[in-house]
C-alpha cells in the first residue's frame, strides 16, 4: 500500500462521516441547541449566583457566560465523542463495521482515521456554536479563534479516543445509555466547565483533586486559554497524554486477537 492508498482511505472515511452527519440533521441541531440552552438560559439565570473572580487566563472580571463558553465547547466535543462511540457500537451490531475492518490498510490507521473524521465533525459543530454565540456577546480576538483550531483537534481527538475505547468495551446498544450516564455527567460536572477549581476547593478538596485529574478539565482549560490567545502547556500536555492512553487502549480493544467483533452480546 502506498501513501496514495492511505490518503484515499482517509478521505473515504471522512466522506462517510460527513454524509452520515449531514443526513442526521437532528443530531446537528441537538449539538447546537444543547450548549446554547446552557449559555442563554443556565448562564443568564446563574449570573448573579455564580460570580467569577479573576482567574487565569482572564485579566479582568468576566461575565459568567464568558467563563462557561469554553466548557460548553468541551461539552460539544464530549457529546460528539460519545455519539461517535454510539455509532461504532451501532455499526458493529448492524454489521457495517466489518466493511471497515476488512480493509487491507492497518487497523490502527483505520481507527485513527475514524477518530480524525469524528473530530472534524466536532470542530464544525464548535465553530457553528461560536458563530451563534457571537450574537450574544461571546467572542474572542481573531487570534483566539485561530489558536483554538489546533487545540480543538487535540481535545476532539482525546474525547473521540475515549469514545472509541468505550465502544470496544460495550457489548450491546442497549447498555450504552447507562454507560453514558457514568461518563458524560461526572466528566462534565467534575471539571472547570461550570466553575473554577478554587470554587470546588472551597467546598470539597477531594472533589477538587478529582476535577484536577479529570482530562476533561484540562481539555476545557486548553480551550479557555486558546480563546484568550494564550497557551496552557500543562493542560495541553495532560490532554495529549490522555489521548495517547485512550487511543492505545482503544487500538488494543479492537485487536483481532481479543475477538472484540465476537462480542455481539
Amino acid at each position: 500500500m502506498t501513501a496514495a492508498h492511505y490518503r484515499r482511505c482517509f478521505i473515504g472515511i471522512l466522506k462517510r462521516e460527513a454524509l452520515r452527519f449531514v443526513q442526521q440533521r437532528e443530531r446537528f441541531v441537538a449539538a447546537l441547541v444543547r450548549p446554547l440552552v446552557w449559555l442563554l438560559i443556565f448562564a443568564a439565570g446563574f449570573r448573579q449566583v455564580l460570580g467569577v473572580s479573576i482567574v487565569p487566563p482572564y485579566e479582568t472580571y468576566i461575565l459568567y457566560e464568558v467563563y462557561i463558553a469554553p466548557g460548553l465547547i468541551g461539552m460539544v466535543q464530549l457529546f460528539n465523542g460519545m455519539q461517535s462511540s454510539l455509532s461504532m457500537v451501532y455499526d458493529r451490531e448492524m454489521g457495517s463495521m466489518k466493511t471497515l475492518l476488512v480493509s487491507p490498510l492497518p487497523r490502527w490507521f483505520l481507527l485513527v482515521s475514524k477518530l480524525l473524521a469524528g473530530t472534524a465533525v466536532s470542530i464544525l459543530q464548535v465553530y457553528t456554536f461560536l458563530f451563534v454565540a457571537w450574537f450574544f456577546d461571546i467572542d474572542a480576538a481573531w487570534t483566539g479563534y485561530l489558536l483554538l483550531l489546533p487545540v480543538l483537534v487535540l481535545t476532539g481527538m482525546m474525547m473521540g479516543a475515549l469514545g472509541l475505547l468505550l465502544s470496544s468495551a460495550i457489548r450491546q446498544l442497549e447498555n450504552f445509555a447507562g454507560v453514558m450516564n457514568f461518563v458524560i455527567f461526572p466528566m462534565f460536572f467534575l471539571s472547570t466547565a461550570l466553575y473554577p477549581l478554587w470554587r470546588l476547593q472551597e467546598t470539597s478538596p477531594f472533589l477538587a483533586r478529582l476535577a484536577d485529574w479529570n482530562p476533561f478539565t484540562h481539555a476545557v482549560e486548553s480551550i479557555r486559554f486558546a480563546m484568550a490567545g494564550k497557551i496552557n502547556p500543562e493542560s495541553l500536555g495532560i490532554t495529549l497524554s490522555a489521548l495517547l492512553v485512550f487511543g492505545a487502549l482503544a487500538i488494543v480493544g479492537y485487536n483481532p486477537a481479543r475477538g472484540t467483533m465476537a462480542r455481539k452480546g
Binding site: M1, T2, H5, G12, R16, L19, R20, S96, T99, P104
Partner: peptide, 21 residues
Amino acid sequence: STLDLDLTVRQNLYYHAALHG
C-alpha cells in the same frame, strides 16, 4: 448485510473502494 442503509448504492461502493485505496 454490511451495507450502510442510509447511503445510496453508489455511496456505499465508493466507500468500499476508498477503503481499498
